[in-house]
Design a protein around this nucleic acid. Structure first.
Lengths: 254, 254
DNA sequence: CCATCTTTGTGCACGCGTTCACAAAGACAT
DNA sequence: ATGTCTTTGTGAACGCGTGCACAAAGATGG
């Protein structure tokens, strides 16, 4: 999972739990696959297996949406696709801007999963003047001087930040000031935003670190003995920390 | 958040809750920034603010690691950096392979956040023969025929999958068979793996869909009235679903 | 129309995670 | 030494999410 949301103490937006909302896209994907195979109905058991969750959870999730589904039969695939799409707001068009067209930004611009779900890349924005006009994924990159105008002209409410960490907070503030109220942040920084703005964070290195934790545990249930009283700052350099570059800017917003 | 882990019913690995483990990298990043500024100590309040969590949670998280920290003063930054690094297993070197060197794979190969945390990109692997030998981020791409040999020669236990969805499960099985026990999956598919293998998923389009849900709620607390009895399969095509491409393969593993 | 069989929808209990609030611990000044 | 002040570490309460297990609902067949 991309790492969790920021702020928002699990606000149950109208009765649909956050945890359920986070799973709806999963169900939608599985249902879309079934739909393409022209499968008319599916039981909670089958769909749960396809989505990788247990069936009781799936049924409870759907119960928050309403009583779609027929006892003894299952769920109508097409109908459920529609209902979930509507609930997620995917029946409307969402113009999105991507700020920071480096390797990652370009990958995002090319990513098919956006367009196929009602998300339209309205503009690519970068601070490098050399990038301006250069097409990426068929869309010409625009300079960040025009950020505010681009947001307003296109009615953008969702922004994707793929800049270096050092630039993220400033970009974020400009996006918010221009009217963006949802941000997907790929920069390895904690963004601070005013109330009413949603931020979701995707942090590649955090995911790897979590895996490393479990990996270490699997590998050395035994070797984890050299514990105890390390003299404060003595140890540390073993093999990690090679290369002063990395994902962290020398200065940090706060 | 990249979306959550698959399987593993919140196994509390030795007393450190999963939720805490997921936040340790966050603390580590904030602490590293402080360390670079040569800040000697930090209070739970300050550090919590920098990491974007509340201070009580941070203190409880640290209490699972042990009683580092001095009452009345705070935490020794260097010492804490070391302790968290050790706990996460970052004091050792983790060779990683990236499979699928498309836009995203290339972006990952270039991503600085990996190298700076003890993760070393041991190899790039792609199924396209035309890619073989071509250097990406200074590392020559190798053909997937040699996947097993690469894994074994380098002692790789962590694999990153950045292939199209259709290829992900097959790649996953080959990785696991070759000895990989932790997988970071960027392909929009549910991977099924044997017990003992950890999978974490990062799904870009899911994150956007969750944002869209909240965005819709913010935008139209009012306009959400056309509800009720939709005739099963009638609606659906409005503006979403343009383009049959996307993140979902026509056939799905299961 | 009745019986049987399948599958949904949900009440309930349990466990994890979060937060509060405070006692204990130590620094620091006098 | 003693007192004050800061900040940690944690017991306890609470709330959310999960999973069990079953009653209700409807399909299907005779």
């Amino acid at each position: 999972m991309a790492t969790g949301r920021t702020h928002r103490p699990a606000t149950r937006s109208r009765g649909i739990p956050e945890a359920t909302v986070a799973r709806l896209p999963l169900y939608l994907r599985a249902l879309t696959a079934l739909s393409e195979r022209s499968v008319p109905t599916v039981s909670s058991e089958e769909l749960a297996a396809a989505a990788g969750v247990n069936s009781a959870k799936l049924r409870k999730d759907f119960s928050y949406l309403g009583s779609y589904g027929t006892r003894g039969v299952g769920y109508d695939v097409e109908y459920l696709v529609y209902q979930i799409s509507r609930e997620l707001g995917l029946t409307q068009d969402w113009p999105v801007v991507i700020v920071g067209i480096g390797n990652l930004g370009a990958a995002l611009a090319n990513y098919g999963g956006f367009a196929s779900r009602g998300f339209r890349v309205a503009a690519l924005i970068d601070a490098d003047p050399a990038m301006a006009g250069k097409p990426v994924a068929g869309i010409p990159v625009q300079h960040s001087d025009d950020l505010e105008k681009i947001i307003q002209d296109n009615g953008v409410s969702i922004g994707v930040i793929a800049t270096p960490a050092g630039a993220a907070q400033a970009v974020c503030e400009r996006l918010v000031a221009a009217g963006v109220t949802s941000i997907l942040n790929f920069a390895p920084t904690v963004l601070s935003v005013p109330d009413g703005v949603d931020v979701r964070k995707v942090d590649l290195s955090i995911e790897l670190q979590i895996l490393a934790f479990h990996e270490q545990r699997k590998a050395g249930e035994v070797a984890a003995a050299s514990d105890g009283g390390v003299p404060a700052a003595a140890a540390r350099n073993e093999s990690a920390d090679q290369g002063p570059d990395g994902d962290m800017p020398a200065v940090m917003p706060a």
